[in-house]
Design a protein around this nucleic acid. Structure first.
Length: 288
DNA sequence: AAGCTTTGACCTATA
DNA sequence: TTATAGGTCAAAGCT
């Protein structure tokens, strides 16, 4: 198992599809300083429930364990920009170069330390990046954002309302701008989608100041528009799952929704049945 | 009827 | 100061 790649671990752990990637990045942040923080650029980094993971467990275990939650939250610390690789010590990769995906982080510099921005980017896109990897850090210092290749899955269980779309010059793909539909939530995300519908990049700005809506697990609804939205999101995630298989070497998914949600529970002692996993498995089967 | 997406216009930051 | 790019607004139509 020690020779198993990170991708294999992920693939075997059944965490590749459906909704999960965004949560730990743009997920719920229990506290926010300031009042309202209308501008994400001035938003403080979310006080992630970081507890340094213990050493010496496999990442596959991590994926199946509630530890993943806090660990995944500590994958990237918007506060410190640190990536606690030590959580993979033992049977896991020793350093990030062992991963088939790139993680780019930067310590928040003075001017951007308060910015809360995350970028989930397609590895393929990174491979096309003309900037040599060894210079990426320098570039990242200028770009006040955290870049991590996670997956193209854009369904995170939160309610997003699209408020704009723009063709930006620096990318050939159009960007869609989304706001969280939760009242008073300033969380936003920018999704860059390729012509074939694949999400090539997701940028998160601001964190959620609320837990994830329930409908992701139980579209129980009452026919409300939120459930309709849930259907849309689920449908979109299914599409992503299909495209995911077409280029599996360029996409890695974290089961982050679960993580993030459990994090909320652990953080707030919320008791909630975890019936979302069957849903995940079901979607995964669709992609098989 | 509420809430969503679409899309052109507008605003703002930056070089 | 101006041009450009990126982000947001808001009306219209759709679900």
């Amino acid at each position: 198992m020690s020779s198993t790649s990170f991708t294999d671990l992920l693939a075997s752990s059944g965490v590749d599809s459906y909704e999960q990637d965004e949560d730990f990045l743009g997920g719920f942040y229990p506290e926010r300083t300031g009042s309202g923080l209308p501008k994400f650029k001035t938003a403080q980094p979310p006080p992630l429930p970081i507890s340094q993971p213990s050493h010496g467990f496999a990442f596959s275990e991590l994926l199946d364990s509630p530890l993943l939650l806090s660990s995944s939250h500590s994958l990237i610390s918007p506060t410190t920009g640190a990536f606690p690789y030590q959580c993979f010590n033992g049977s896991g990769p020793k350093n990030h170069s062992d991963f088939p995906w790139q993680l780019q982080t930067q310590p928040p510099i003075a001017s951007s330390a308060l910015q809360e921005t995350y970028v989930v980017q397609d590895l393929q896109k990174k491979q096309e990046d003309p900037v040599p990897r060894e210079f990426a850090a320098d570039r990242q210092v200028k770009a006040p954002s955290y870049t991590v290749v996670v997956s193209r899955n854009s369904n995170d269980g939160y309610g997003w309302r699209k408020y704009g779309q723009k063709q930006v010059k620096k990318s050939e793909n159009p960007r869609s701008y989304f706001k969280c539909t939760y009242p008073n939530c300033v969380s936003k995300k920018i999704v860059e989608t390729a012509s074939d519908g694949q999400i090539t990049e997701i940028i998160y700005k601001g964190g959620h100041n609320h837990p994830k809506p329930e409908f992701t697990k139980r579209p129980s609804g009452s026919g409300s528009s939120s459930s309709a939205n849930a259907r849309r999101m689920f449908k979109a995630s299914s599409v992503v799952s299909e495209t995911h298989d077409q280029s599996e070497n360029s996409s890695i998914s974290f089961d982050c929704s679960d993580l993030e949600q459990r994090s909320f529970k652990s953080e707030y002692g919320e008791v909630e049945e975890e019936d979302d996993q069957p849903e995940i498995k079901r979607v995964k089967r669709e992609g098989e």
